[in-house]
């Protein structure tokens, strides 16, 4: 047994002439969240569909919970939960009927499937709508039901393919709480997203893919360091101190860079490590310059994304994709 819940080596997949994946490696330790980040068409969904046994890779190997996804798909299916980009529930059935049907298909037995449905409906605040056909649900309600459906058998490994695309911010936070509670219960989560803040909020590690290839893999903080060092920001209490403070900051800055006044009364310099901050504090104190604000910033993931892929992150407010189109089409388009 390995301590990796998900491991993939050199996954390759083509759709006709389109190479969706060109050798993707992934490794997710048990009990952690991996954020799979990438622009539209990068191959995120294809990777998830291979790992969840919905697609066969053309090349490479992948194991989930120690089971090979090609040789033992049934063993993999017993331990995973999957929430796709569009709701995988039956529109003509009620929310409750969907959950009971899935529970029975997952071999919980009729009574336990019923009880589990009640529990999940409560957890996802769908109790009131439980006995209405899903086609009357709002987009957010469908997403919640879909997520509930993938948690019926308490899966060890949960795949969430853009779980919050198209949700309003309030609902997104609620979804994040669910992901956090899954991890507290010991599950491993692979989450694809286009929202950088989502990856930052949830993921222990982030793999960035573009054009079917992994272009970076690190912790969120590690990724930010790729773009360059940190920024030290200081706001002296008295405006008169600005020139002297600027001199001091310049002395601790990377390569002696000049301090910029980025906002009125706020000086900023690029620095190389956390030590620069301590030094700056000591020297400012020695010089008798009181400060009201002092902070160390990593670059935002947006900047990281731009540096890695050469283009800005997707607009998070773009309209949701047609929910009925198959995911491959979305991926290769």
């Amino acid at each position: 047994m390995t301590d990796l819940a998900i491991e993939a080596e050199g996954l390759v997949k083509s759709f006709g002439a389109t190479k969706a994946l060109r050798g993707v490696d992934l490794a997710v330790p048990r009990g952690t969240v991996l954020g799979l980040l990438g622009p539209n068409g990068a191959g995120k969904t294809t990777a998830v569909r291979i790992l969840s046994t919905l697609l066969r890779p053309d090349g490479g190997r992948a194991r989930v919970g120690g089971h090979d996804v090609v040789r033992h798909p049934d063993r993999v299916r017993r331990i995973i939960g999957l929430t796709g980009q569009y709701a995988s529930v039956d529109e003509d059935l009620t929310g409750r009927q969907n959950l009971i049907l899935f529970g029975i298909l997952l071999d919980l037995g009729r009574a336990a499937a019923r009880a589990r449905a009640v529990e999940l409906l409560q957890w996802f605040e769908l109790t009131e709508a439980a006995d209405r056909p899903v086609k009357t649900y709002s987009g957010g309600m469908r997403r919640r039901l879909d997520l509930a459906a993938s948690l019926i058998a308490r899966p060890e490994v949960v795949f969430l393919d853009e779980p919050t695309t198209g949700l309003d911010p309030g609902k997104r936070e609620a979804m994040w709480d669910v992901v956090r509670s899954l991890v507290l219960d010991g599950a491993t989560v692979l989450l694809t997203t286009q929202y950088l803040e989502e990856a930052e909020a949830l993921a222990d590690e982030i793999t960035v893919i573009d054009h079917g290839q992994v272009i970076a893999h690190d912790t969120p903080d590690g990724l930010k360091r790729i773009v360059g060092g940190q920024t030290l920001e200081v706001r002296p209490s008295r405006m008169d101190d600005l020139p002297r403070a600027a001199e001091i900051l310049s002395a601790v800055a990377t390569g002696g860079a000049k301090a910029d006044e980025i906002r009125t009364g706020v000086l900023a310099v690029p620095v190389d490590g956390d030590a620069a901050m301590t030094t700056a504090v000591a020297r400012l104190a020695e010089a008798g310059i009181p400060v009201t604000e002092l902070s160390l910033h990593l670059p935002s993931l947006d900047e990281v994304f731009f540096t890695l892929t050469g283009r800005p992150a997707e607009n998070p407010n773009r309209p949701a994709e047609n929910p009925n189109r198959p995911a491959e089409t979305l991926e290769v388009s």
Partner: peptide
């Protein structure tokens, strides 16, 4: 089969014929 619910059936540990 073009709807999402069949994806869920396919990701379940049930016989393909079911």
């Amino acid at each position: 089969i073009t709807k999402g619910v069949f994806d869920r059936f396919r990701a379940f540990p049930i016989p393909r014929l079911a």
